[in-house]
Structures are given as C-alpha cells and as structure tokens.
Amino acid sequence: MAASAIVPPSPELLESEWKTPDRGKVGITFLILTETSLFTMFVATYLIYIGKSLTGPYPKDVLEIPILATICLLSSSGTIVFAEHALEREELGRFKVWWLATLLLGLIFLAYTGIEWRHLIYVDHLTISTNLFGTTFYSLVGLHASHVIVGAVFLTLVLVVTLRGFPIATQKRRVMFLSWYWHFVDAVWVVVFTVVYIIGR
C-alpha cells in the first residue's frame, strides 16, 4: 500500500506563513542570560565581603565616584541607538558619526578606569592581594571592564570596515546584536556602580 495521507492543513498554517523567532535574537538573549548569571556571582561576592577586610585601605578612604565615566558609558547606550536608527534609514554618514561617538565614549570610560586603577595601585597601595576589598573590587570592576573592552573591539571592527567601504547596511541584524550586547554592558555598569560606589562605600 502506498502512503496516501490526505491531511487537511493545520489551522495555524492556514492563518499565515509559519514564523519562528530569529535565531540570532534568541542566541544573544540567552548569551546575555548566562552573562547575567556570571555577574550575579561576582556582585553577590562583592556584597558578602563588604566590610570584611581585615586591613585597609577601605573603600571609603580611596574610592571616588566616577561620575564622568558613568555618564559617558550610559550615554553611549543612547548614541548607539541613534547609530542604529541612522543605519536603518541607510544614512551612512550619520551612522559613522554616532558609531564613532559610541566608541569614543566607551574608550573614555576605559581610560577613566585605567587612571582610577593606576591611582589606587600606586598612590593608595591597593592591589588585588591587599585585602578582601581589593580582591573583590578589582575582580568585579575588571570583569565589567573586560566586557567593555570586548564590546569596544567589536565597535572598532565595525567602524574600520565601514570606513573602508564595507556595505555595513547589509549587516543591520548583526549591528543590532552588538548594540544589545552594549546595552547589557551598560546595564551591568548601573549595578556595579550601585554596589561598588554607593552601597560599598
């Protein structure tokens, strides 16, 4: 006997074409989920060890609130959105400007972190092995900074290939994923900032 299934079409296939979520969106969402889990552990450790250092220097003695850096990083979330909008409308010039602005803001943030660490190490003599504060501070802020660096590397790559004439408008989807990641890094900074510079002090 031959296969002769006479099957009426499914109701949901009648309604419209079969659609599933974009795999890239799903992938980046769950990458962010797993990163969140990683950061949660470091943040929790930081919170647990607040005030447990046996010797100084203590946070209140040496930490200064990085207002400028915070403003830079948070506003870079806005500039990357503008860049995306520009790309959406295929306005390459504006895209480049906003993208460059995002990258610069990110770099300013990193530079500030570098200066802060330098000061902490050479002036305040706080290293990762000084006390629990040093241990948790450098690891948490460093973990976040390493994410900013990864983001900045990708931002730079996009900028370089765009400037060299690569048709970036063909990559809207990937640019969007990069911007999601960048937003995530910013959001993490809000938490790190609150924990380290407000609660921790």
């Binding site: 889990s37 046996l54 690891s139």
Partner: peptide, 29 residues
C-alpha cells in the same frame, strides 16, 4: 554553569594573583 566558572575564576585569581576570595587568613570565607 556561570556560577562554577565564576568560582573557578576566583580560585585562579587567588592562586595566580594572590587574591583572597577563599583565603581564610585574610578574612575570606
């Protein structure tokens, strides 16, 4: 899995860079 990775990163920081996450002598837990 990230909690394990986090713990292992902390352990490596302790062992390579002299951090004190699990170092009870320095008040670690």
């Amino acid at each position: 899995l990230p909690p394990l990775s986090a713990a292992q990163i902390m352990l490596l920081l302790d062992r390579f860079l002299g951090a004190h996450f699990f170092d009870t002598q320095f008040g670690g837990s």
